[in-house]
Nucleic acid binder design. Structure first.
Length: 773
DNA sequence: GAAGAAGGATTTTTT
DNA sequence: ATCCTTCTTC
């Protein structure tokens, strides 16, 4: 399909090509030069994958392929941005469409909204909006949920959507009570979304996949429009994404997938490893290229990673190698407890920075679960080491931002009930629960959106005149705002915050938090102005909203600031650091306890460890502790089974400060900094208090000569029976009065001699049977 | 509508 | 144990 190059100087072209292929190894070069037909690039960590992909795009362009015929899909905005930037470098001015799957989906849906039953304008609900919709639906339809939480039901729906099962296709399995709840809720939820002309994140893929399936002409048109499709992180695609890609690669099967089965860590979100494992069966005559040379890590690090991942069955074998130095041995350190672990890491980093050996941004600390970050944060603060933590949503998730944007959503899509509910009484307009209930009933009866229902508030029975008038006022406000919706986004938002009274309310408030809220909405205005300038009238409110929904402002991990990075293993994918600390390499944490039952899940945990290890360029420290405080309990920690799958004999093993014996005082021997250190942002705190409570804890722990759970195995929820005498470390002796639930939910009501009656969730409490063992 | 009490959950979280 | 959400009450 490669068109012949446009008339140009042959010699010039040749030099350009040489430039493109410069410094590529054979496998990389082969991938870059591949033009037509399916291509699978199995890219090991640090193998120059992005480089290959961008160079391949540049090569296609140099062969005369139009930029508009190339589509590159990624999972994250960050990856898309990076790819766009590098393509721009290689082929300036060429407008290749590089997008996340979801943004691509949103764009296609804008073109074809009618085909899937959406209105001209639609809203994209984020997780919390969609959760709210779900709850409203369950409430309105009075669907019995059998005590399943909205979150559980939502994830049931989500996983159905990921598997491309639509609401009317969903079949409950008799073995799963949850699925029968989902079977009731899913159709109602979906109907409500459509009535509000809204989609959730999963819908962006589901609708598009359906669209391509059900409309052959549309599919064919898009297939030919996007002749060359590239996908990044193919191992993370779910069923819906698979179908979309397939549909775009039938007539022009030039799909180039890059990925690494060994780095698939999103199985729990519906990613289907089979997509990449079966690529060759799915796409006949696919060319498979392995990028096996690692340019990132030392030999020692790569060897450990490779040995570990070799224990997985479901994979495609790669022979990873590197020409880098052997490097330092990996450090495997056992600490007494997590404070010792955190303090040691903080000190190592501090020392390296102070000696000028390294800078803060050279370091990263990874953990399996967010809950483990706290002791590390504390230690870094105490050692005055600057750090940044990569965490979820920020800016666009803030209440005030969501409030203001909800007005915009409602203006853009008058059917948007979530936006209506969010705005109607914020700032307060005396429209209370009763009014909204009556309005909701009315709207529900006629199948009308809330805003429409509010228009005829005078007709709603059981609604006081006063209330009806207030609703009408609100409708008038929205109408007024809507009249100016066509202008620059900054002006739209500007009139929203002044006309709605939102700004005034914040200005009048003397709550300190409201002052910062005010600052945030001013910042939103700035953001909108930048948007207007960037697109110069080419894009309006709808496009702006789409960006707020799909561009996670928290791609704000700054790689250029000089700080230590703290993140979960999941967040670490795709990044690299000279020095990596991986903490809590312990059984039950890594691998996580919930995955120990299932081989596939265990393999995913192993991949997670693999990802973490392969982020390290020069130095890697794995650490574990003997005693770990977790969810309020202190437990003896067991080294991770993964350690036995690595060449630990060649690692530099160390037991913290060198001694095997744990000095019980050691952990309370805080570095002097911590005692003096005062958070400048913190409100004036009652200073001596923390010390006192620390002292109490210490004393209590030391007096408690009875062995800790370390030697007293924690009682299982099944060990308890009615009338049994039990002991609780805090409440003392008691007798079980009643029991309920099972498994993790099993709870007991205990009558304590001193503390009275309490309900206790057995799996989460230190309750022990007394007497018979 | 804010403050306080009670209840529930507690792995990871690209969009 | 602790945090977060939801419900209750004034």
């Amino acid at each position: 399909m490669a068109c012949s190059p446009p008339a140009a100087d042959d010699h010039q072209l040749q030099t350009a090509l040489d430039k493109l292929l410069e410094n590529l190894n054979d496998a990389q070069r082969e991938a870059v030069l591949h033009v037509d037909g399916p291509l699978l690039i199995l890219a090991g960590p640090g193998s120059g994958k992005t480089r290959v992909v961008t160079h391949r795009i540049a090569h296609l362009l140099s062969r005369g392929v139009y930029a508009s015929q190339i589509l590159a899909l990624t999972f994250t905005n960050k990856a898309a941005q990076e790819m766009r930037r590098r393509v721009e470098n290689l082929a300036p001015g060429q407008r290749v469409w590089v997008s996340t799957f979801h943004r691509f989906g949103a764009r296609l849906l804008r073109e074809h909204a009618d085909l899937v039953g959406l209105g001209q304008s639609f809203t994209i609900y984020d997780t919390s909006d969609s959760r709210q919709t779900l709850k409203r639906v369950i409430e309105a339809e009075k669907i019995p949920t059998m005590h399943y939480t909205a979150d559980r039901i939502a994830s049931g729906i989500s996983s159905a959507k990921n598997k491309l099962i639509t609401a009317d296709e969903y079949q409950p399995r008799s073995s799963s009570p949850l699925s029968s709840v989902v079977a009731r809720v899913y159709p109602a939820y979906q109907q409500r979304l459509l009535a509000s002309s809204a989609v959730d994140f999963d819908d962006l893929l589901l609708h598009v996949a359906k669209l391509l399936k059900d409309n052959p002409e549309v599919r064919a048109e898009l297939d030919s429009r996007f002749r060359y499709v590239l996908v990044d992180e193919y191992q993370d695609t779910n069923r819906a994404q698979y179908v979309i890609l397939r549909a775009l690669s039938l007539d022009y099967p030039n799909l180039a997938a890059t990925g690494d089965p060994d780095q698939s860590i999103y199985g729990w979100r519906g990613a289907d490893l089979n997509n990449i494992l079966d690529f060759e069966q799915d796409y006949g005559q696919a060319k498979v290229i392995r990028l096996e040379q690692n340019y990132r890590s030392t030999k020692a690090i790569l060897r450990a990673a490779d040995t570990l991942i070799g224990h997985n069955q479901r994979r495609k074998k790669k022979a990873l190698f590197t020409e880098n130095d052997e490097g330092q041995p990996i450090r495997l350190v056992t600490y007494a407890d997590q404070d010792a672990e955190a303090n040691s890491i903080a000190r190592q980093i501090q020392d390296a920075i102070e000696s000028g050996e390294r800078k803060a941004s050279d370091f990263a600390i990874f953990y399996r679960i967010n809950a483990l970050s706290r002791s590390i944060e504390r230690a870094l603060r105490a050692h005055r080491v600057p750090f940044q933590m990569v965490r979820g949503q920020e800016f666009y998730q803030r209440k005030e931002i969501k409030d203001v944007l909800a007005y915009c959503q409602l203006i853009n899509n008058p059917k948007d009930d979530v936006a209506f509910e969010r705005t109607v009484n914020s700032p307060t307009r005396g429209i209370g629960k009763k009014t909204l209930e009556a309005l909701g009933d009315h709207a529900y009866r006629y199948g009308a959106p809330l805003l429409e229902a509010a228009r005829e508030s005078g007709l709603i029975e059981g609604l006081a005149k006063r209330s009806a008038a207030k609703l009408s006022q609100f409708v008038a406000l929205i109408d007024k705002l809507t009249a100016h919706a066509g202008g620059p986004v900054e002006e739209v938002i500007g009139s929203v915050i002044s006309e709605s009274g939102y700004r005034q309310r914040l200005v009048d408030s003397d709550d300190e938090e409201d002052a910062s809220r005010l600052a945030n909405i001013e910042e939103l205005l700035t953001d909108a102005r930048q948007f207007d300038e960037e697109f110069e009238g080419e894009a309006g409110l709808e496009e702006y909203l789409e960006r707020t929904w799909l561009v996670n402002e928290t791609d704000n991990w700054e790689d250029d600031s000089d700080k230590v990075t703290l993140m979960t293993l999941h967040a670490a994918k795709g990044l690299e650091f000279p020095v990596v600390f991986l903490v809590a390499v312990e059984d039950g944490i890594l691998p996580h306890e919930r995955s120990s039952m299932d081989t596939q899940q265990l393999e995913e945990e192993r991949r997670l460890a693999f990802v973490g290890i392969t982020r390290a360029e020069a130095e890697l420290q794995l650490s574990l502790v003997r005693l770990r405080d977790f969810r309020g309990q202190r437990r003896m920690a067991v080294p991770s089974s993964f350690l036995m799958e690595m060449p630990t004999h060649e690692m530099q093993s160390d037991h913290g400060s060198g001694s095997l014996e744990v000095d019980p005082w050691e952990q309370f021997d805080l570095p002097p900094e911590e005692e003096v250190w005062v958070d400048p942002n913190a409100a004036p705190a009652p200073e001596p208090e923390p010390r006192i409570s620390a002292a109490i804890t210490t004393a209590a722990e030391l007096t408690d000569q009875t062995p800790r759970p370390a030697t007293t195995p924690k009682a299982s929820p099944d060990d308890f029976s009615l009338d049994m005498t039990v002991r609780h470390p805090e409440y003392g002796l008691g007798k079980i009065k009643s029991l309920s639930g099972s498994g993790k939910r099993r709870a007991a009501t205990v009558e304590f001699a001193l503390a009275g009656e309490r309900r206790i969730v057995l799996a989460h409490s230190p309750l022990q049977p007394v007497g018979n063992r």
